[in-house]
Nucleic acid binder design. Structure first.
Lengths: 234, 234
DNA sequence: TCGCCACCTTGACTTCGCTCAATCGGATTC
DNA sequence: GAATCCGATTGAGCGAAGTCAAGGTGGCGA
C-alpha cells in the first residue's frame, strides 16, 4: 500500500485512536479499490461485508424510500470512514453507497474488524467514536431540515466549505455537482438554483463550480436568522 | 432496585446482549430517578455524565437551533436507552433531553460505563448496537422528512403504534400530546391537525388521544405513495 | 356546577418549494 | 464552425405547510 494512502487512512476517525501496530495490522489486510463515478459500493439491505475509508473522491450515502424517492444521508470524502456501525454484526446496510466522483477507497473486511475487536477490545471504542461522529452529523442534518429554509441550508453548506481561519471575502470550490448538492440539502436542483439566486442578495456569487462569498460574517448571520422574522429587515 | 424495574432495564438494547452477571454489576451501581413532566434530564453542550434507560414514561431528545427553533430528534419510552454514544468519552451531549410525561429513569454514570468497558471489553459491543439503533432511527427520520408529506408522516407514525400482528380495523392510543407529535414529525401543531383531517379521507378517525384506523392496509398504501403522483387517483 | 385554562382545531392569508416546461450555456463531436 | 447534448437556470402555476388570529372543547378547581 502506498504510503500516501496509508497516511490518509491513518488519520480517519476509525484508525486515528489506535496505536501504530494495530492500525498497521488492520491496513495490511485491507484492499485498495479504485472506482469510477457512479459505481455502487454497496446497496441498502445488502449484508454488511466491509467498512470503507475514502482516500480520494466523494461518496454519497443515500436511501431509496418505498415510494421511490432518494434521500441523501451523507456525503463523504478524504479521511472519512463509513459502514462501521454495521460491521461488527452481520446486519444489513441501512443505506446505499455510490461514488459521486472517481474514487480511491480502502475496503476492510468485517472479518478483519471482528478479529481485531477480539484481539484488541479497545478497537471497539474506535468504532464507537466513528459511529458517534455519524450520529452527530445526522442530528445536525435533521436540525437543518427542520429549522432552516432552503436558502439558509445552502448558505450553511457554503460556510462548511470555508477554511476555519478565513474571514471577509472568500472563494470556495463546490466539491461535487449541483444535483448532489441539492440532494444533500433535501431539495430539487431547481430550488438550489433559486436559493443561489437569493443568496446573491447576501453577497454570494456562483459561477460554474466556484462561489465567491463577499462577506463571511453576514452570510453566517443570514444562515442563523429565524425564517419567521426575516421579513423585518426591509 | 425493584425487580420490575430491573426486568425492563435488562431488556434494553444496552444490556440485552450482556450475560446476567455483567448486567447485574452495572445495574447495582445505577440509580433510579423519578422525574416530573417537563423535567430536564440534560442539556445539549453539557458534559456527558451518564447514560439513561427509560423504565416508564416518555423522554424527548431535541436540539435548539441557533435561530431558536426546536428540532425533535427522538422520543423514547420503556426499554429505550439514550446517551450511550457520548458516554465513553467525556464529550458534550449533542442534544437536550426532557421528560414529556412523568418518568422513571435509570441513570448509569459514565464512570461505571468506562469501568465496565475496561473490565469486560465486549460491553463496548453493546454500546455499539444501541448506538447503531439510534443511527438507524435517525436515517429513517431523514428519509421521512425528505420523501414524505406531512400527512404521510402522520400516517406512518400511527402505523408504528399498531401491534405487528394486527390487521383490518385497529384502535391506537396516541402516546403523548399533539404538540410533541407534531415536533417529532417536523411540523407545527396546526399542520398536524390538518394532516389528521386529511387522513379522515383514508379511514382514520381521531378523537382526543385515540385514533381509529378503519383499514390498516390502505393506510399503509397511502403512507408509501409517491406524493408527486398522488393526484392521479381522483 | 360554573368558569377558567390549556390544548386543540379551524379559517384566512402568505410563503416556500415542487412540477412541468422552455431556454440557456458550455463542452464535445463531427 | 455547426450540430448536439447535458447540466443549469428561469418562468408559470400549484399545493403543502407556516403564520397569525379566532373559536371550540374538555378537564379541573373553586
Amino acid at each position: 500500500m502506498l504510503s500516501s494512502i496509508y497516511q490518509v487512512a491513518r488519520k480517519s476517525l476509525l484508525l486515528a485512536g489506535l496505536p501504530e501496530d494495530a492500525a498497521k495490522a488492520i491496513l495490511e489486510r485491507a484492499r485498495v479499490r479504485e472506482t469510477e463515478r457512479g459505481a455502487t459500493v454497496f446497496l441498502q439491505g445488502e449484508r454488511a461485508a466491509a467498512v470503507y475509508i475514502v482516500i480520494e473522491g466523494w461518496v454519497k450515502l443515500y436511501r431509496i424510500a418505498p415510494n421511490g424517492a432518494e434521500a441523501v444521508v451523507g456525503v463523504f470524502t478524504k479521511g472519512h470512514s463509513f459502514g462501521e456501525a454495521v460491521a461488527f454484526t452481520h446486519d444489513a446496510y441501512p443505506v446505499s453507497a455510490e461514488c459521486a466522483t472517481d474514487c480511491t477507497l480502502i475496503r476492510i473486511e468485517t472479518d478483519a474488524i471482528l478479529r481485531m475487536v477480539r484481539d484488541k477490545p479497545e478497537f471497539a471504542l474506535s468504532l464507537l467514536s466513528a459511529t458517534f461522529a455519524h450520529l452527530h452529523r445526522l442530528v445536525a442534518q435533521i436540525e437543518q431540515l427542520k429549522a432552516q429554509t432552503g436558502a439558509q441550508r445552502v448558505a450553511e453548506f457554503l460556510l462548511e466549505l470555508v477554511p476555519d481561519d478565513a474571514s471577509g471575502k472568500v472563494e470556495v470550490k463546490l466539491p461535487y455537482d449541483k444535483v448532489l448538492i441539492a440532494g444533500r440539502l433535501g431539495m430539487k436542483p431547481e430550488s438550489l438554483s433559486r436559493a443561489f439566486a437569493k443568496l446573491r442578495e447576501h453577497g454570494v456569487k456562483v459561477k460554474q463550480n466556484h462561489a465567491v462569498i463577499e462577506h463571511l460574517e453576514s452570510l453566517r448571520d443570514y444562515a442563523e436568522e429565524d425564517p419567521a422574522t426575516a421579513w423585518q429587515k426591509g
